Amino acid sequence: AQSISGVFAGDEVMKGSLASYTFEHMEIASYTILIAAANAAGEAEIARVCEQNLREEEAMAEWLKSNLPQVTEQFLARAELDSDSAKR
């Protein structure tokens, strides 16, 4: 049962990376909407705070994007080692 469950969990690192990157972009869209709504309502302070949060989310999305190739390479190297070990 454990080896069968490994088939489904083997790519959790990649799924987690994809989910994190996707979630950051949902947050970016959400803050963009909140900023537009705050500006339309004349709520400059709310817009300012949301803009600060937006910059943080954009920075995190960029960090994730720039690290995805390295995470992928490390995942593939580990998967290859695991595959070689299983063959023995």
Rank of each mutant, 00 (worst) to 15 (best):
residue 1 A to G: 06
residue 2 Q to C: 06
residue 2 Q to A: 05
residue 2 Q to M: 04
residue 3 S to M: 05
residue 4 I to T: 08
residue 6 G to I: 04
residue 7 V to I: 13
residue 8 F to E: 13
residue 8 F to P: 08
residue 9 A to M: 14
residue 9 A to L: 10
residue 10 G to M: 09
residue 11 D to Q: 07
residue 12 E to Q: 09
residue 12 E to H: 11
residue 13 V to C: 13
residue 14 M to C: 06
residue 15 K to M: 03
residue 15 K to G: 09
residue 15 K to S: 11
residue 18 L to Q: 12
residue 19 A to Y: 14
residue 22 T to I: 15
residue 22 T to F: 06
residue 25 H to E: 04
residue 25 H to V: 01
residue 28 I to S: 12
residue 30 S to Y: 08
residue 31 Y to K: 09
residue 32 T to Y: 01
residue 34 L to H: 01
residue 41 A to F: 03
residue 45 E to P: 03
residue 47 A to K: 05
residue 48 R to F: 11
residue 53 N to V: 03
residue 54 L to P: 02
residue 54 L to Q: 01
residue 56 E to W: 04
residue 57 E to W: 07
residue 58 E to T: 04
residue 58 E to F: 12
residue 59 A to H: 07
residue 60 M to V: 09
residue 60 M to W: 08
residue 61 A to F: 07
residue 62 E to R: 09
residue 62 E to H: 13
residue 63 W to R: 14
residue 64 L to D: 15
residue 65 K to E: 15
residue 67 N to T: 07
residue 67 N to W: 05
residue 67 N to Y: 13
residue 68 L to Y: 06
residue 70 Q to V: 01
residue 71 V to P: 03
residue 71 V to W: 00
residue 76 L to E: 06
residue 77 A to K: 14
residue 78 R to C: 04
residue 79 A to C: 09
residue 80 E to G: 02
residue 81 L to V: 12
residue 81 L to H: 14
residue 82 D to Q: 01
residue 83 S to G: 06
residue 83 S to E: 13
residue 84 D to T: 15
residue 84 D to H: 10
residue 85 S to K: 00
residue 85 S to P: 00
residue 88 R to F: 05
